[in-house]
Design a protein around this nucleic acid. Sequence first.
DNA 1: ATTAATGTTCAGAA
DNA 2: TTTCTGAACATTAA
Length: 327
Amino acid sequence: MPELPEVETMKRGIAPVIGSRIESIELPRIKAKSISISPSFRVLKSRLVGRVISGTDRIGKRVVLILDNTDRLVFEPRMTGLVLITDPPTQDHLRFVMKLGSNQEVKAGGESFGRRLASSERQANAREENAEGNSLMYWDRRGLGLIRLLTNEEYEERFYGGKLGEDALKIGYESFRDAISRTRRPIKVALLDQGLVAGVGNLYASEILHVSRISPHALPSRLTEREWSELFAAMRLVLSEAIQYEGSTLSDGTYRNALNKEGGYQNHHRVYDREGERCPTCAKSDIVREVQAQRATFFCPVCQLDKANELGSKSKSRSSRNKKNSS
DNA sequence: ATTAATGTTCAGAA
DNA sequence: TTTCTGAACATTAA
């Protein structure tokens, strides 16, 4: 699901829209309930049409279009949202379309979707319409995402007014440690708090902790200096690796980049969704799946052993595991 | 045919 | 103040 690497990939993928003028915006007529757009679609239309997209940005897990009057159109994909510039995965969950004037000549010859085009005439037509019109689309299977148009001031207030933490790839070591130390929740839970550091989600939190060999249950207050620096390095490593592979497309196949192409990082996950597989780091245990704060958490109980918390941990029923490790 | 599970964010409760 | 819980929604696996 779109976390920092996926959203960064979308942002990079829509770079071709920079410099284009917005000719119109549309709400595709679909059966699904419409997503949240604020202010209203009418207002968006009056404020967007005619404007030029002067740039793009990413803030945490959001994609941002910067307009020539400094307004910002923010796409928040949440679970299953995608920002695309080619045909979306399906037509029935296409939520928002922005038609763009071509800033430069677009070659209409390069159709390379032959296989999928065969499926249905209706879809092929709709797709053609989108593909040749040079448009930017928002697709969202579950429809939990949202789109909002903000003035520059509203944007600054909303995202830099202390409500959102610094971006996980921009934050420095000291600030990172200070931010995460601000809570008494376990480290895995703290990493998910966007108000502390922005961009890390459930999948990458597990991966980052595994690389740094820190237990998801470890308490920030008890991390050593060495662990902090390993955690920080692991965060940068994992996120940039994932960006190199254009993000993770999980088994449900939802996530795609801006060209509707799957990511590749799922093949390089060390622990996420790998319950029962051998730990790639120590090879002394299988990966364990556990629910922590209502979220699936994957880790290796051996090389991510939480020494400080081992005895006093308030874990619930652990009956299924009988490990007779010397202690 | 129901039900649970999926992950992000926010409002409201503890 | 800080942390926790449930809702928003659509789809799939059980």
